[in-house]
C-alpha cells in the first residue's frame, strides 16, 4: 500500500514549520514520527496534498526536570518516556502508558506530541495526561499559549490545537499524586489498542485517599476525567471495598464506545474493574 502523492517539506525549526503551515493552510498536514499519519495515508484514509515534516526539529526533543514540572518535548518518543528514570519516578502513569503502546518498534518511532495531537479515541496517553493534570504548550504565529489537559481533548480526533498551531511541549506537574500514579490497560490482543485504559494519580495520608485524579483512555469518544470515581474515593480509607465502590461509579452518566470486538456493556463493566484495580495499586 502506497500513500497518494504529496509534496514534502522539511522544517528545521518551529518557526519554519509555522511559516510552512501558514503558507500551505488546509492542504498541509504535520508529520512527526509518522506512526499514526503514515498508516492512515497508506490506507488512503488521509490524502494530504502536502506534508510538513517536523521530525528533525531538535528543539522539540527531550525530557527536562524544571523543578515544579517535567517538560517533555513534543517529539519525545514513547520509548524515551518508557525508559526515563525521571518520568518513571515522577509521573509513573505516563511511562506506563508509553510502555503500553504498540510494540518496541512503534515505541521507538512514535512521539507523544503526534499521538496527542492525533487524539485517536483509542490512544493510551490521553487518560494519563488527564490524571496527571498536564499542561499542553501550543505555538502559533501569534505566539505561545497553554491549555490544561482537561480542555485539550474536545471530541473524536479533535483537540484544542487550531489550524496553523503546533503542539510543542507537555508539562507534567511534579506533585505527590503524580509520583504515585499508574496506568492500567486492558488491550485488544491483536491491535494492542485499549478496550479500557485507566490512569490514577493519588495522594494518601495514613491509608486514606486525600486526593485522586482518574482519567480514562479508549472508553469514550474522547478521553475524560471521571469525577464520579474521584468523589467516591476522596476522603475514604483505601480498601478493597472502598475501591470497588468508587470503581463502580466509573462511566456513570457517560456514553461509552461500542465496536465490533467489545460491546458498550462489556467496556463499561471493564472500566469499573480497571478503575478499582488502579485505585488499589496506588492506594496501597
Amino acid at each position: 500500500m502506497i500513500p497518494a502523492a504529496f509534496e514534502y517539506y522539511r522544517a528545521s525549526s518551529v518557526d519554519e514549520a509555522l511559516a510552512l503551515m501558514q503558507q500551505h493552510g488546509e492542504d498541509a498536514k504535520v508529520l512527526a514520527g509518522g506512526h499514526s499519519l503514515v498508516p492512515a495515508m497508506k490506507l488512503r484514509l488521509a490524502t494530504p496534498e502536502k506534508l510538513i515534516d517536523i521530525g528533525g526539529i531538535s528543539g522539540l526533543q527531550g525530557i527536562q526536570d524544571r523543578g515544579d514540572h517535567i517538560a517533555i518535548g513534543a517529539l519525545t518518543t514513547h520509548w524515551q518516556l518508557e525508559s526515563s528514570d525521571l518520568v518513571q519516578q515522577k509521573a509513573s502513569a505516563l511511562s506506563q502508558a508509553a510502555g503500553a503502546i504498540g510494540d518496541v518498534q512503534v515505541r521507538n518511532r512514535g512521539t507523544i506530541g503526534g499521538a496527542l495531537a492525533h487524539a485517536d479515541p483509542a490512544a493510551d496517553y490521553p487518560g494519563a495526561i488527564l490524571a496527571l493534570n498536564a499542561t499542553l504548550v501550543i505555538r502559533g504565529s501569534g505566539g505561545e499559549r497553554t491549555v490544561a489537559a482537561s480542555g485539550f481533548f474536545t471530541g473524536l480526533w479533535e483537540t484544542a490545537v487550531q489550524d496553523g498551531e503546533l503542539l510543542t511541549e507537555i508539562r507534567i506537574p511534579t506533585d505527590a499524586a503524580n509520583a504515585n500514579s499508574c496506568y492500567l490497560k486492558f488491550p485488544q490482543p491483536a491491535s494492542r489498542y485499549p478496550y479500557v485504559g485507566c490512569a490514577v494519580a493519588m495522594t494518601t495520608s495514613g491509608g486514606t485517599c486525600s486526593d485522586v485524579r482518574v482519567g480514562f483512555s479508549g472508553v469514550g469518544e474522547s478521553a475524560f476525567r471521571d469525577s464520579g470515581v474521584e468523589n467516591a474515593m476522596r476522603g475514604q480509607a483505601v480498601s478493597e471495598a472502598s475501591a470497588k465502590f468508587a470503581g463502580d461509579q466509573a462511566t456513570n452518566g457517560r456514553s461509552v464506545l461500542s465496536d465490533w470486538s467489545v460491546s458498550e456493556e462489556y467496556r463499561r463493566a471493564m472500566a469499573k474493574v480497571f478503575a478499582k484495580r488502579a485505585l488499589l495499586q496506588v492506594g496501597r
Binding site: D53, V106, R109
Partner: peptide
C-alpha cells in the same frame, strides 16, 4: 540505532 518498521516510514524521513 533503533529498530523500526520500514513499511511505516517514508524514505524522505530518513535523509
Amino acid at each position: 540505532g533503533e529498530a523500526v518498521k520500514s513499511c511505516t516510514l517514508l524514505a524522505v524521513q530518513c535523509n
